[in-house]
């Protein structure tokens, strides 16, 4: 069952990002979104999250059932961790404060700490935590892994599995392909502004005997710049 099936053409004032790119997202799958720097991963996520003003059809999921994690944490500078969590609890009906507090504990973060004093990694963790604490149908996650240590990465993966069910779809954009490829069922590879390849991760492994990471390096190494 598709939740998104469309052709996207999108540009910023100075740059063409996508031109007639076909995109198909199925429900209940975990997607890995990969591509070189500047190819439009973040833009694609913003489009799919309905943050940029761009029209496309979204099936089975309505706009409020999307949980988007931007690559930088968004917060008001006066806030402590618990303030931000309470904010989401108050304003988002699908946010689960219990889920958030439970994992806050696992990550060993102190709720009374000021957010602006947190390290980059801790902010990433909080960002990710908030995104997954919402009970949504579509999760769009932009670069969760930078600055986060390997043991915490494990907890990240656990959180996804715990949240996962057949009605939920995940799309995770990352450069740390190896951290995540075993968990992903499909990979969306942005080759250039005209093509996004959608491949099953297991198929890549069966047919070419390469991990997704190695496949990506092979494919992208020789792509010509237009």
């Amino acid at each position: 069952m598709e939740i998104i099936k469309d052709t996207i053409t999108f540009m910023y004032p100075n740059k063409l990002v996508f031109e007639n790119v076909e995109i198909k997202i199925n429900q209940g799958e975990i997607y890995l979104l990969i591509g070189r720097n500047g190819c439009g991963k973040s833009t694609l996520l913003r489009l799919l999250a309905k943050i940029e003003p761009y029209q496309f059809k979204l099936h089975l999921v309505n706009e409020k059932e999307i949980s988007y994690m931007p690559s930088d944490l968004v917060y008001y500078s006066y806030m402590k961790i618990i303030d931000l969590l309470k904010f989401y609890d108050d304003t988002h009906h699908n946010f689960s404060l219990d889920f958030a507090l439970k994992y806050l504990d696992e990550f060993k973060l102190n709720p009374k700490q000021k957010i602006k004093k947190l390290s980059m990694g801790e902010q990433k963790i909080l960002n990710y935590l908030i995104c997954l604490s919402k009970n949504a149908k579509l999760y769009l996650i932009d670069e969760p892994f930078p600055y986060v240590d390997l043991l915490n990465d494990e907890i990240f993966r656990n959180m996804i599995i715990n949240r996962y069910d057949e009605t939920k779809t995940f799309i995770i954009a990352t450069h740390q392909i190896n951290e995540f490829e075993k968990l992903a069922s499909y990979c969306l590879l942005i080759k250039d502004y005209k093509t996004i390849e959608c491949l099953s991760t297991d198929e890549i492994r069966s047919t070419v005997s390469l991990s997704v990471e190695d496949y990506f390096k092979e494919v992208m190494r020789y792509v010509k710049d237009d």
Partner: peptide, 12 residues
């Protein structure tokens, strides 16, 4: 500055 994201998916 993206602060609009705080309210974008809110129930308000």
């Amino acid at each position: 500055k993206n602060k609009k994201l705080l309210y974008q998916k809110a129930s308000l």
